[in-house]
């Protein structure tokens, strides 16, 4: 038994070394550049800063352009919380009825749900619709866009999970006199908790990191999301690499926290369906 274990140790050590170079160096580079002063960061080399300026850089990037980054964090938080909350409730309603009440329209609905996963959204016609509704360049519009584009993934997740909840529970609730709304929100929805957590986390990371949709549907500096500040700061800070990388660092922290707390749910959500195909 000692030889395989030795081999496991050796290959593990090699893997740790390789992973450090391939995966950790880029992150270390972000942290190091974010803690340097302006002239040192301009060298863009991989070295320890002679003086750590991490706090000064943090203040500078937060205060830049009239606290734009703070406003962007507020915008991104509103966007993420609102769109994920709406998306999850609406998708749970659809997935639940689709699973419980199949009829001859269900194949068509299935096709529509899959279409949402596969088809790239048509950008300019979407802007045209948003303008018609008066929602272009508004946070409300972008929230609804994220809901529309995220629904498919959530519906598939909820439909699969609703199948594991026994129908006898529904019937018991009906006999006790629960109406359809109460049955869903007070009996079924609480039982979907684990899959709700999964959907919320996976979609929050996706919406928070989304760059393309804010770029198209919420352009401009006035209510930028954090991903857009990165893009805007980049053209402004071509000589201030320390501030640009501080911005990257700050934007990386929320997903890092998510991962630290919920990595099991993230893994469950992303691998659902992988084994059964």
């Amino acid at each position: 038994m000692s030889r395989p274990r030795a081999a496991g140790t050796v290959s593990g050590l090699i893997a740790i070394a390789v992973s450090a170079v391939v995966f950790l160096v880029p992150f270390a580079f972000i942290v190091l550049t974010a803690s340097k002063n302006r002239s040192e960061s301009a060298l863009r080399d991989f070295s320890l800063p002679t003086e750590w300026a991490i706090w000064e850089n943090f203040l500078a990037v937060v205060q830049a352009r009239d606290y734009m980054l703070l406003a962007a964090f507020v915008n991104s938080t509103i966007l993420t919380v609102a769109s994920v909350a709406i998306m999850v409730v609406l998708a749970a309603m659809v997935g639940y009825v689709m699973q419980r009440r199949p009829n001859r329209w269900t194949p068509l609905l299935n096709a529509l749900v899959l279409a949402g996963l596969i088809i790239p959204p048509a950008v300019v016609p979407t802007i045209w619709v948003l303008q018609g509704l008066g929602l272009f360049r508004t946070l409300h519009g972008l929230i609804l866009i994220e809901v529309a584009f995220g629904l498919s993934f959530c519906v598939l997740l909820f439909r699969a999970f609703t199948a594991t909840i026994p129908r006898e529970l529904d019937e018991a609730a009906m006999i006790d006199g629960a109406g359809p709304v109460r049955l869903f929100f007070q009996v079924v929805l609480p039982l979907l908790r684990s899959v709700i957590v999964t959907a919320v986390i996976v979609q929050s990371v996706a919406v928070f990191n989304d760059f393309q949709n804010p770029l198209y549907f919420l352009p401009g500096d006035s209510n930028a999301t954090v991903q857009l500040t990165l893009y805007n700061f980049r053209s402004q800070y071509t000589t201030q690499w320390n501030l640009l990388f501080m911005d990257i660092l700050l934007i990386t922290i929320p997903p890092l926290i998510m991962y630290a707390f919920f990595n099991r749910q993230i893994v469950a959500g992303l691998t659902s369906g992988a084994v059964k195909g």
């Binding site: 709406i86 609406l90 998708a91 309603m93 659809v94 639940y96 009825v97 419980r100 009440r101 609905l109 529509l112 279409a115 949402g116 088809i119 959204p121 048509a122 016609p125 979407t126 045209w128 619709v129 948003l130 509704l133 609804l144 866009i145 809901v147 529309a148 584009f149 629904l151 519906v155 529904d170 009906m174 109406g179 359809p180 049955l183 869903f184």
Partner: peptide, 22 residues
């Protein structure tokens, strides 16, 4: 007990902002 109108809110958002533009 599984009312069809449960499709409605999602259908409106998805229909206006995804199906119609497509």
């Amino acid at each position: 007990h599984y009312p069809m109108w449960f499709y409605l809110p999602a259908g409106v958002v998805y229909g206006t902002l995804f199906i119609v533009p497509t």
